[in-house]
């Protein structure tokens, strides 16, 4: 569980970084469909889950303080 808590923020950083790259490329070449791809949708899904869990953990941590 501790390990999971530690890697969650990194998952968020990595997936957000990837989405930022897709977003920029998509501005230049929409035809490549980087933002509409099934893989991208999966990345958004995983990022959302990770973000929610990270946020819950952070709120929990703040309340403990």
């Amino acid at each position: 569980m501790k390990y999971f808590e530690r890697i969650l923020p990194h998952i968020c950083i990595i997936l957000s970084g990837m989405l930022l790259v897709f977003f920029v490329i998509d501005r230049f070449n929409q035809k490549m469909g980087f933002m509409e791809n099934e893989g991208t949708k999966f990345i958004i899904f995983v990022l959302s889950i990770s973000s929610v869990i990270t946020s819950i953990l952070l709120i929990q941590f703040q309340r403990k303080e």
Partner: peptide, 14 residues
Amino acid sequence: LTDLFLIGLFLCIF
């Protein structure tokens, strides 16, 4: 830096 490297790696895989 590890995160940055992993972003690059996963982009390549994608």
